[in-house]
Design a protein around this nucleic acid. Structure first.
Lengths: 352, 352
DNA sequence: CGCTGAATGCTCATTTGGAGCATTAGTGGA
DNA sequence: TCCACTAATGCTCCAAATGAGCATTCAGCG
């Protein structure tokens, strides 16, 4: 997928010969897993629905809702997903879109666990968390719990300078002796671009790239668990974000990435909002997703000017200040512009 | 995937109980197909690599290179794909990215054909066609052959006004008697937005949406073949674009869609260009992909200003006019900007 | 040698995007 | 009751990005 990333696609022991079967053509059939990153905004915090369980060998207890796809029971992939989510969490999904299909690239197989599928399809679902009710098995957790370096709402996260930068740079140094084919892009450059170091801009849409880089460098616990690279040679540092089971953190990274990208050209924020909201609440939700603060007046101009919302006529008091007009999503915008979305761009405060 | 589209996800007879197997967990295993839309630009024409074969029941002879994925032989999905492409066409893929995973939604099963996989994963590959050499089995064909309505290089394609518009509008009318739940977006509005009718702007990035709409309306031959809807009730009109086997035209639509979107924020055009090229050649390639004409001087300013290219120092004569400087892709741009691409937007000539 | 068809260099008018100033209006206390 | 505080809102300014068009330069060709 990405020419900059090559390490992870490299050989890993072939552990996955179970679950194979042959059809009449002699072609192998494989089991398919469906995983859902179900995202909401709860108290101005971007949250994902996680299912908690006994820890795996990396100590991960959290995972995304998932289940196998069986074409016998479900006509479509998405249909299968919705059923599984309903069964596992009692949640009825609204908006859902497919993210990516991952082949088995060395995903760990836990002795006691369910045998993980060889191919897993990730989905992103956006929903309203409401007051957190209605989820029978699972809990809403900030996604920044798993990706603390992605949370720029209170400025640049300290973990980047204190942990990530030095450890990644050590990893880059360790590859310096150039006895072999050089990669297309040097490790140090990838680090710089991914984490906005040395004057490079922080790009909030590189969520997956960053996670993959940390994985490749052996700095996330999943890498250790999967038996990758010389993990932990950098000493006993605090873990970088909480790990998840299987490759679920990678799927969640893909989900965050997609959400951040899509919010800019599709009116998907409104899937996360109640029917009526103030512009400030809307802004807070957008900031929860994207990270950095936005200029309040310009945000208003943007959102109103694009015709994304319309006033309901009601006001909301108890805002802490002057009462605010209530707005609702203006559905007709879909018929007016080809790609309506919250076209914000990061302010310079998020750069360097 | 798309809230506007619902028809195609509706029930179709469940034909796909072969090929199922059970693993130790009791979960069904399915066969996975890998399909590649391999794209190049040949003589200023956007082409895809197609494999030709005996016609299916819809008369389709063309298909994309494809083969089953067997984890026994291939560690990664992409690895499996590359092998298949190499075997079928002799082509060694360079840039490739995953597009989408399609579940079986009523894909036709030809009696004499290979049993099509239940789940198929589409890939997009970009390559240089060179002089058309080196393809042992298959041929480069304009992608506009399958999607004539997408080719706006010589103005609005006549087929839209002469065939598509009247037939789609008839289809929309046929749904008017509102005895049932109304869809979120009316057919007439979808038609208007998709094909830029009645003053709406043409959005070159709606390739998939347009194809899906035509399929839903029963206006492409694959819909008839798949036994969908009341196809052909509109009389005996010429076919809208050449059909392809299985769901390959849908995959190709996805590929075109992705290429058109990605060219704007990633330097993927250069995968299609020779090492050295003039700015006009580059522009012609971009136009081949996107459709409409671009303002020549602004294109130059854009591409040079963004640092996407650098002069080689050589000149090209025989341009038909004044000699042109030769340029090459400036790889370092990847280290400078977060999302480098040919950020063109459609001129008003492409509107209405 | 003058003409033709591109390649190039520049200018100009808008539009869009990023910031900041000023004012208005409930809330909570003093 | 009046004041300080916190937001919500209305506008203005300025700079950068974008869309068009004019003018000039040149190799190839009757």
């Amino acid at each position: 997928m990405n020419m900059e990333l090559s390490g992870r696609a490299k050989p890993t022991p072939e552990k996955a010969h179970r679950a194979l079967a042959k059809d009449s053509m002699g072609h192998a059939a494989v089991e398919i897993g469906l995983n859902a990153a179900i995202v909401a905004v709860l108290d101005n915090e971007p949250v994902a629905l996680v299912v908690r369980d006994a820890p795996d060998s990396s100590g991960a207890t959290d995972g995304l809702p998932f289940g196998p796809f069986s074409p016998r029971d479900h006509r479509t992939l998405e249909g299968g997903l919705r059923t599984w989510v309903r069964n596992q969490t009692g949640l009825e999904l609204g908006y859902a879109e497919q993210l990516y299909t991952f082949g088995d690239r060395g995903r760990h197989i836990e002795p006691g666990d369910l045998a993980p599928p060889i191919v897993s399809i990730g989905y992103l679902a956006l929903t309203q968390a409401g007051d957190g009710r209605g989820v029978s098995n699972g809990a809403w957790r900030t996604w920044y719990h798993y990706f603390p370096w992605e949370d720029w709402r209170r400025g640049r996260p300290e973990i980047i300078a204190s942990e990530i930068e030095p450890r990644l740079k050590a990893w880059a140094e360790s590859a310096k002796p150039s006895n072999g084919p050089q990669p297309l892009i040097a490790r140090s450059d990838r680090i710089r671009m991914c984490f906005g170091l040395d004057g490079a801009a922080w790009d909030e849409e590189k969520v997956l790239e960053r996670y993959e880089l940390l994985y490749e460098a052996g700095l996330v616990d999943e890498a250790l668990r999967d038996g990758r690279s010389s993990a932990r040679v950098w000493g006993d540092h605090p873990r970088l974000g909480q790990p998840m089971k299987f490759d679920h953190r990678r799927i969640l990274a893909t989900a965050i990435n997609r959400t951040r990208a899509k919010i800019k050209y599709r009116p998907v924020v409104f899937e996360l909002m109640p029917d009526e909201f103030t512009l400030y609440e809307l802004q807070k939700s957008v900031e929860a997703i994207l990270g950095p603060h936005l200029h309040k007046q310009n945000f208003r101009r943007l959102v109103e000017g694009a015709g994304l919302v319309e006033p309901t006529g009601e006001m909301k008091t108890r805002t802490g200040g002057r009462p605010a007009k209530l707005f609702r999503f203006r559905r007709e915008v879909l018929l007016e512009r080809p790609a309506p979305g919250v076209r914000v761009s990061a302010p310079p405060s998020s750069r360097t």
